[in-house]
Design a protein around this nucleic acid. Sequence first.
DNA 1: GTCGGTGCAAAATTTTTGCACTAGC
DNA 2: GCTAGTGCAAAAATTTTGCACCGAC
Lengths: 152, 152
Amino acid sequence: MEHRIDRVKKLLHAQSYKLTPQREATVRVLLEREQDHLSAEEIYLLVKEKAPEIGLATVYRTLELLSELKIVDKINFGDGVSRYDLRKEGAEHFHHHLVCIECGSVEEIVDDLLVDVEKLVESEWGFQVKDHRLTFHGICKQCQQAAVKTPL
Amino acid sequence: MEHRIDRVKKLLHAQSYKLTPQREATVRVLLEREQDHLSAEEIYLLVKEKAPEIGLATVYRTLELLSELKIVDKINFGDGVSRYDLRKEGAEHFHHHLVCIECGSVEEIVDDLLVDVEKLVESEWGFQVKDHRLTFHGICKQCQQAAVKTPL
DNA sequence: GTCGGTGCAAAATTTTTGCACTAGC
DNA sequence: GCTAGTGCAAAAATTTTGCACCGAC
């Protein structure tokens, strides 16, 4: 855990930003709840438990900063709010999402499935790919099983 | 053009909704500006030119309805607003987006690149894919050429 | 007359901004 | 002291909702 905080600290310092207590608390929440795709509000409430004096605006400013530095990814699943995901350390593996349209659960998959597709996009469209977002919408394993047990 | 309006009309009727003048004006704007990824506000302003009495709330309600019926796709590129895209007629081909991080242009690609990837997700994760969203971020052909001519 | 649909205004929600204040160098 | 960073409150921006009204069947 600590080495991951240190890594963020270094990335911030490299751009002359500081890892303030507020920023550290925010990063710690992101680390602790890495699988959770938290919204700014949710992050704010969790950070408040560690650092009660923090303001929502600071959380937004921190998340925006981390987002610019590509330390977190700002993602949007179509409900009104942005969600924030810590990037994995080895930046060559992106992670994608499986959003269940039944129960709303979000699963992550870490394989880089798009290597071939990216090559195709570069050669066919002349578009130099830097990053990508991929989200599948569908029905998760649990809901499929539930549907078998209790059909409509 | 007209047959595409008719198609929407049928889809609405099939679910006991009407193609009111306001809804028709909205769909026409979407048809005319199909490549443009308009926001609700932009659509509202364009619809107002045809039907000045329309309210923004109606545009939102129409877009939400069309979205539920899968006639349009609600997409989000990370700026604060939702954008709306008419689905292509042959629903088995989704369309993906190439977002240029230099000039902000959005290109569409219509190939269904993900057939193999979807199969993998279904077999590996047991997730039944219904739809997907794929966006590439990178540098478009024009900006690459501009960069060669005028390096930093 | 009923009911889906609409327009308007108000409300709710999410995010940003202005400004005075603080802490570290 | 200067500067980056912060907290708070206000503002902005986007989207939703309540309600009275309208129009087609």
